[in-house]
Design a protein around this nucleic acid. Structure first.
Lengths: 332, 332
DNA sequence: ATGAAAGCGCTAACAT
DNA sequence: ATGTTAGCGCTTTCAT
């Protein structure tokens, strides 16, 4: 039914080994036989069975990708970076969504390892100790992309979130604000709860502004959460005049809610976000934002993985990519 | 090194066949032996090798997904629908981007078939005859998601694009417009060049409005393309007063360019788009749009694929999902 | 209910 | 340069 390497060998009057050699580009084949074999392959429309190959060679040339949610642009961008580099190195990707649930992450990792992936790149906003444990005991390399393992034991690619957040909030302080809100996604995500929050607090402290816990609002990272956050903060005694938003959608919700309340952005209130998605340019006012190099993080993570899978020396398992601020119209 | 089914069999004093049975949930195992085997599996941390399994059983429980670009929200949404249903039926997904290049599509299909996927779902804005041919000669089922094969030979899941476009343009005519532009993505994509365009022309004809080819502008589907399209159309002798945009980004570009030119939307000009992404609600004015059930298209396509892979009877290989119009603020 | 044994299609020594 | 031969780890008849 399906044509195998054996059929090709027989038709070409050579051994399976020789066919295998030409298929795998081994140089130890006389040009004439190579040509003959290639012809038979073409004629029989032979297509090597990668599963059999994987069993025999213990390499599948596929890597697993565990992502919270591919329909979220942040992760989609990362995924694209991963896939492009994977393709470049002839790997395919098994992609699964975890919805940021620890049990799903663990389960996905297990089934991917069962499928004998050669490595995995994983995104997780909360690298728990179970995950750390799973990474440590994995038979194949795992690299974290845009995800921080506080113990720094796992290979990972990130930016300096603390520094980036510090710079963003500093802009607001620099523009004279004293009442600055931090509207964030879930604080149990390391990047939010540890890095951004610490940076926010530090900027205030460095500027001798007293911290007001009321100004820290955490929820999800959606547009509607931004709207609610604004409404919640608008009614406190001394409402904020500036906002550090954890995402572009949050920032946009904040801005629209402010505008609906008759405020002008950036004249009455200023907003700076953390993401710089395509959205940032497509809204009015355009968003000032910390630019996350999402595609690059994915690409570099995958590249790092190829090196580790290849047993090349890697100088540093924890890579930190540069970031920058994109100042547009939501700040003065 | 790695523990195999043989190790488990030896430790549990049973044969490989029995271990295989318990792993696969075969009922022909005495509860006592099942328990014993399960214990050994747990103790040895045995994890079945899916590659070996795939070679022996000729099933990999993985399906291929070929998509133009995962970083594009339209496709990301579709992909999420596909993956959710795949997970539900215990399949994993090999995901690859084609960038809508025919040669990459063909190549990806080939490597996926080489990896012995059990089926594939494919998105392509231009199902060429080579692709049709490849689908026809595939050893495993292939279903198209949100992609039309004009010959209707391949299984597919879509909405009625012609009807949806007709309704959208009809709204504009209903609001009294005579100069209606069609700002589209590439016209060599079937949905644009055949369905939407035909619908656009038909609405005009039915309303006795003369077709003006000048009002048909095709480019890419980005925000910037929307801006350019507006600028291009603004300088013709009788500029359009209404726009049928091929995507949300296009619509938004059109709107912002109009606003920058001092026009009010929807009072001076009206815009209706074709997509209804999250963006539609997050901009001002909010976009009136044809709502594409992207997630559902992906989900139903995957469900259809499971049925075909399972050799179940499917009443209709060409499924057409319902759509609706979401009228917001960019139209009166 | 359980076991024996023959593959699945290929790679990778090892010979020659 | 080419062929022979073991496996890779599992499923699947076929016996018993």
């Amino acid at each position: 039914m399906t044509v195998t390497i054996y059929d090709v060998a027989r038709e070409a009057n050579v051994s399976m080994a020789t066919v295998s050699r030409v298929v795998n580009g081994n140089q130890n084949v006389k040009p004439a036989t190579r040509k003959k074999v290639l012809e038979v392959i073409e004629r029989l429309e032979y297509r090597p069975n990668a599963v059999a190959r994987g069993l025999a060679s213990k390499k599948t040339t596929t890597v697993g990708v565990i992502i919270p949610d591919i329909s979220n642009t942040i992760y989609a961008e990362l995924a694209r970076g991963i896939e492009d580099i994977a393709t470049m190195y002839s790997y395919n990707i098994i992609l699964s969504n975890s919805d940021q649930k620890e049990d799903k992450e663990l389960e996905l990792l297990d089934t991917m390892l069962g499928k004998q992936v050669d490595g995995v790149v994983m995104m997780s906003d909360n690298v728990t100790s179970s995950i750390q444990q799973a990474i440590k005991s994995s038979p194949v390399p795992i690299v974290l992309a845009g995800s921080v393992d506080e113990k720094k034991e796992a290979a990972s690619v990130n930016i300096d979130y603390y520094q980036a957040a510090y710079e963003a909030v500093r802009i607001l302080v620099g523009n004279g604000h004293k009442r600055i809100a931090f509207v964030s996604g879930p604080l149990d995500y390391t990047i939010n709860g540890i890095y951004k929050l610490a940076a926010y607090k530090q900027v205030l402290e460095d500027a001798n502004i007293e911290l007001d816990e009321q100004l820290i609002v955490a929820g999800d990272s959606t547009y509607d959460d931004g709207i609610s956050a604004y409404e919640e903060l608008a009614v406190i005694s001394a409402p904020p005049t500036a906002y550090f938003a954890g995402s572009d959608e949050l920032a946009l919700g904040l801005i629209h809610a402010a505008q609906d309340a008759g405020k002008h952005v950036p004249n009455d209130i200023e907003v700076i976000s953390f993401e710089n998605s395509k959205l940032a340019r497509m809204v009015r006012p355009q968003l000032s934002s910390v630019a996350l190099p999402l595609y690059d993080i994915g690409a570099v993570a995958m590249r790092l993985l190829t090196k580790i899978m290849n047993k090349e020396e890697v100088a540093e398992q924890t890579v930190v990519l540069p970031h920058h601020l994109e100042i547009r119209q939501s700040t003065k």
